[in-house]
Simulated scan of single mutants.
Amino acid sequence: MNSKLTYIDLFSGAGGMSLGFDKEGFNNIFSIDIEPSFCETYKANFPTHNLVQKDITKLTDQEIKSLTNQMDIDVVIGGPPCQGFSIAGNIGRRFIEDPRNQLFREFARVVEIVKPKYFVMENVARLFTHNKGETKMEIIELFKKLNYSVDCKVINTANFGIPQVRNRVLFIGNRISDNIIFPDKKVEKYTSVKDAIDRLPKLKSGEKSKIANHIAMKHSEQMLEKMSYVSDGGNRNEIPETLRPKSGDVRKYIRYKSTEPAVCVTGDMRKIFHYSQNRALTVRELASIQTFPIDFVFKGSTISQQQQVGNSVPPVLAMEIALTIKKMMKDDKQIS
């Protein structure tokens, strides 16, 4: 039975999944990502991890074997970007065969080579219903051919005390038994945006603070005037008609509702304003909504930092996932 739990993090980004698994006592064998600024953030926050900054399609089978050094790997984790979506589905072409989903196939390739006891693949919820559910079944069948029991489920981060409604699909695989466990809902009352970020110093448009990544974007006077009419949780309809934008992004000129969880944090959240301060949220506030601790520092340009935060798995969710893997391992007598 294993005393030292091990994991590999594919498409590691800023390190939301790594952080959660570290906190639950797993040891990193290696992580891989291609984006330089994402890697800069990862290195700054995980100085002892073995990060490979490389296109995963260029990582050879032999390199993978060398990186793992024939170790028993407990779990491979990651969220491969899947671009091969369309409203009508991939007519005449299976999801797995779509070249746009090459990165998903790379996840499967690493699993096939490393043969971890378990794997966790996280992705957008749309994968669950895509192509009338056929895509989900294709993925499950592929991993079954690699001798894994597999199941998938859509989960909402707000159910785990995370101050954000973020629906994601989790595919969990088990090579040891048929036992698959998913994280269980933890809270009855949702955590609000205000609960998550109200402790941070107030900022005006363009103002900076001493807290890392807590720097307010500078907005135009025109934008600030329009937003001054919008109440907590309100939208553009509160702006006087003479000033109200007639066209443009409907997500613009709205404010977070302080008493509810945030909408899903994405790579560009500059369109939604603070519930009480006249500005968009800072990277630090977005990171707090994603449950990153305040000492987790994001590197690169502000736009890149927002993308890093938006692309991340919330560390608190990653901890819940790591806990379920440990439960499965205990059931399967892989840990005492």
Rank of each mutant, 00 (worst) to 15 (best):
M1D: 12
Y7H: 06
I8Y: 06
L10Q: 03
L10M: 08
F11V: 06
F11Y: 11
G16Q: 06
I29W: 00
F30L: 09
E35L: 13
E35P: 03
F38V: 07
E40D: 13
T41S: 11
F46M: 06
V52A: 10
K54I: 10
D61C: 04
D61H: 07
S66C: 14
S66M: 15
N69P: 04
D74G: 04
I77C: 08
I77G: 00
F85R: 07
I91G: 07
R93H: 13
N101S: 11
V114G: 04
K117Y: 05
A125P: 03
F128K: 15
T129C: 11
H130P: 00
T135N: 04
M137P: 06
K145P: 10
V154A: 09
I155K: 03
I155L: 12
N156T: 14
F160V: 05
V169T: 08
R175L: 07
I180P: 03
I181P: 02
F182E: 04
Y190M: 12
S192H: 04
K194I: 06
A196C: 10
I197K: 01
S205R: 13
G206T: 12
K208M: 12
K208L: 12
M227R: 02
V230M: 05
D232H: 08
E238K: 07
E241H: 02
T242A: 15
R244M: 10
G248C: 09
D249T: 08
R255W: 03
K257V: 08
P261D: 02
C264P: 03
C264W: 03
M269Q: 00
I272G: 02
I272C: 10
S276K: 13
S276C: 13
E285W: 02
L286Q: 08
S288L: 15
I289H: 00
T291N: 03
T291P: 01
D295Y: 09
F296M: 00
Q308A: 06
A322I: 04
L323T: 15
K333I: 13
S336W: 15
